[in-house]
């Protein structure tokens, strides 16, 4: 079948504003969007720029906006889109460097604010044990691949770019609720600011965007509950 790809092009070093370019491809329903982008780049337009690395939903580098929704190009098939015309844009809310490549500096700076690492004073005797029940608390949160699809889809972040965003919140949860972490308060305090967890208004865009099917809004609500418990 033939599909038309309408791709937003923009080179921040020379273009005044973004423009669109169309490519017609004969595709199989089981082709991934990433395969199509590769074919466009290799066969038609060598300057088309996008990120990808693992091609298997692991590295989180190829989050793009497909027909208005943030997705991983390597995880979505043509048959999932169910359209003959596929609109491809960079993920919103982040400055564009070139074509589908956005500047993630701010995204990772916000990620670092929540101290995204296990805080423990002493090295473990052998290993840090965790019960099955304790591990279950962070089962979903550890699946995040930091693709940025959630934060980029968040209207609270569009309105207030200082908001740390759902990905950073999820990371705060991942360590604050990890039974092996000895300083959960440090992760929580980092998000208890006016640009932190309270900017989440449970809009659920992040949940829809997450390619790992993580229920971010639920995790953020657990953080809010934990903060209320701490304060009262």
């Amino acid at each position: 079948m033939q599909v038309t790809f309408s791709i937003q092009r923009y080179d921040s070093s020379k273009d005044k504003k973004p423009y669109r370019q169309e490519f017609k491809l004969d595709v199989e329903p089981t082709d991934r969007i990433l395969d199509c982008l590769d074919r466009i780049k290799w066969d038609f337009e060598g300057s088309l720029t996008y990120r990808r690395s693992c091609s298997h939903g692991i590295c989180g580098s190829d989050a793009i906006n497909i027909n208005g929704k943030n997705m991983l190009a390597c995880q979505v098939l043509i048959q999932d889109i169910k359209k003959k015309r596929i609109k491809i844009d960079p993920i919103p809310g982040m400055p564009i460097i070139k074509d589908l490549v956005v500047d993630t500096t701010d995204f990772f700076a916000k990620y670092e604010v929540v101290k995204p690492y296990l805080i423990a004073k002493n090295p473990p005797p052998k290993e840090r044990f965790q019960s099955v029940a304790d591990r279950a608390l962070i089962d979903e949160a550890v699946n995040c691949i930091l693709c940025g699809a959630c934060t980029s889809s968040c209207p609270s972040m569009w309105g207030n770019p200082n908001y740390l965003g759902p990905a950073a919140m999820l990371k705060a949860y991942r360590f604050a609720f990890d039974s092996r972490d000895e300083a959960p308060a440090e992760h929580l305090e980092a998000i208890d600011t006016s640009d932190g967890v309270w900017r989440c208004h449970t809009i659920f865009n992040c949940v829809e965007a997450c390619p790992k099917e993580i229920n971010l809004t639920w995790h953020i609500s657990q953080l809010k509950k934990k903060m209320v418990e701490r304060e009262l």
Partner: peptide, 9 residues
């Protein structure tokens, strides 16, 4: 209180 929790609750 230096926390947003009471206001939120």
């Amino acid at each position: 209180r230096n926390s947003g929790a009471p206001g939120w609750l």
